[in-house]
Design a protein around this nucleic acid. Structure first.
Lengths: 339, 339
DNA sequence: CTGAAAGCGCTAACAC
DNA sequence: GTGTTAGCGCTTTCAG
């Protein structure tokens, strides 16, 4: 590997100048900069990450915490983070927080403390109190996506409003018997995404003067299979039957769509279904949904981290924790209440 | 951040001893090791990655190259890589090779050359000749998963055999009119996964003495929507109609299942469908498939890299490029040919 | 605008 | 077994 002093020799300058020319910090005359750049190019010089980091304290690397890699939402957000960070020359080191308690602990106690990263982005993770402590102790910028954590700078969509919007869409189409597939009431205390979505749903119904009916609630685990199962229950039970289903995620909505079909319901003629997220399969299934643009969420988180990092040694201002955009996408799974 | 000499002071030893005790390289008496460990623990000392790397040349970090983050197969393999690496204390830095030509180049020319990683794992990537050159120039272990690249140590499943197996399953059930959804013949030259799968399909048919019929081929792009479209064509055309469909991926098989249903075919009574991959949704759709255990592929790749890294400064032997396991999973989408 | 030189925090010979 | 010490390859004062 060619090192900085080879470049310095070739360009006829000191290593300090090479460093300045290549990193853009400190002034160098246009002429020398060009000479240095040419020499570096010719030699194929690339700065050594560890040497540079050790000397400067900057890692050009941000850590990303994800709970699941193989779920569409998370991998899509991650994709957004990765592309935005890469554009700016940053590496990303990936920490997959699994269910394994010890592994999870070691991420906070060891991995993150190796000073490998300048900042961390936590994608929709339920952080324990002491995990948040560990993160804060790192004393580097942290940006969380989703799930309000009052102690962290958080980018979050207004989940209550999102769910309201989906529900109001159904209401505007004339539906009154609307079922809910998502979090059960048991977890009311947690204030997390599934709960917020249920609250938005209930607020919309309440505003429309529609009383909640427990028979129209069915809990599910945010998977296609879960949504399928729940919809079968909802639609198969004798007695009162919903004319529309609100599913707290697109995966569950797709499951519901499939269940409805299997039971002989036509969607949207006999049953309307709305989901949340903006899943890639939504278009194929003609699913009406409230898109929350996960790719964009990742990019915004990356920009936010970058801004904080820049601000630190530059002079810029830190980012205000933003509220993320969302949008109702009306496709073919919802229609006016039939007669 | 507490540094090594604080620990040394607290333990009453030199920094060299602390280093030895904590890294496990070089001999230290049990007593001192314990003292050092206690001191480190008490102070919350964690070695600085950049200092350690600069001094030792070891990064404890492997780079992972992925073409897509948001496709089930890739994120699942990545998940396997991540967990295996993390268990061994390695960080993973993620490089998402996108379509953007410049971004892709910069990964090979710059990112990977910063000496941040001890090795790299390339997950099912079609590497250009010069990209392979760049990788080789790095002079660190590289393990590729899938897609034969004669210049790289590759872990790969025998895609031809996998496709054969799926096809033979159909054949054994009595099917003779079997359609193929996957790569078209146009790309015959490339020797990549889709082509291999088509070849396996054709070999199985040939072995059974069944002539290929062009009307039973329909190209698709490995997505659910693509499989759906292709199956509609195959099943909707007047004239000869297949009794079974071989889809070169589970996503396409699921699309085919949906298309068949929509056209009024019962699966498996009127039509059998087999896929390849072992997709998580396969179980829900009761899809018969040939599983290739992507999670395990990731773990094996991680183990292989680790073995090479260990071998370098230890004395072990490098890994033989293995052939990956696969297995036919018979579920409900295939049945004996009816009458 | 550029150079000299002192580290950054560790590891690895090399002694003892 | 353990301490001393010379770097690892950069960045960054501090001079000039």
């Amino acid at each position: 590997m060619v090192s900085i002093d080879e470049v310095a020799r070739h360009a006829g300058v000191s290593t300090a100048t090479v460093s300045r020319a290549l990193s853009g910090r400190g002034h160098v005359s246009e002429a020398t900069r060009a000479r240095v750049e040419t020499a570096a190019q010719a030699l194929g010089y690339v700065v050594s990450a560890s040497a540079s980091s050790l000397a400067s304290g900057r890692m050009r690397n941000v850590g990303v915490l994800v709970p699941y890699l193989d779920r569409w939402f998370f991998s899509t957000v991650l994709s957004g983070v990765a592309s935005a960070l890469m554009r700016r020359g940053y590496d990303i080191t990936l920490y997959n927080l699994t269910a394994d308690h010890d592994a999870r602990r070691s991420i906070f106690e060891t991995f993150l403390r190796r000073q490998r990263v300048d900042g961390v982005i936590a994608i929709s993770i339920e952080l324990g109190h002491d995990e948040t402590d560990r993160l804060l102790e790192l004393d580097i910028p942290v940006i969380a996506i989703g799930g309000p954590n009052p102690r962290l700078t958080t980018l979050t969509v207004d989940d209550v409003a999102v769910a309201r919007l989906a529900t109001e869409h159904l209401l505007a189409l004339g539906h009154r018997e609307i079922a809910h597939i998502g979090a059960s009431h048991e977890y009311d205390i947690d204030f997390h995404i599934p709960t917020h979505r249920r609250q938005g749903f209930e607020q919309a119904l309440a505003d429309a003067g529609i009383p909640a009916r427990t028979s129209l609630y069915e809990a599910a685990d945010f998977t296609v299979a879960g949504g399928f199962r729940a919809a079968k229950q909802l639609l198969g039970r004798p007695g009162e039957r919903p004319t529309a289903i609100f599913a707290a995620s697109d995966e569950m909505a797709i499951g519901a769509l499939l269940a409805a079909r299997e039971l002989g319901y036509r969607v949207p003629e006999d049953l309307s279904v709305v989901g949340i997220d903006g899943h890639e399969l939504g278009e194929f299934f003609r699913l009406t949904t409230v898109d929350q643009f996960p790719l964009g969420q990742g990019e915004r988180a990356a920009d936010a981290i970058l801004a904080e990092l820049e601000a630190k040694d530059g002079g810029a201002l830190p980012v205000a924790p933003g509220s993320l955009p969302y949008d109702l996408i009306v496709r073919g799974s919802t229609a006016r209440l039939h007669g």
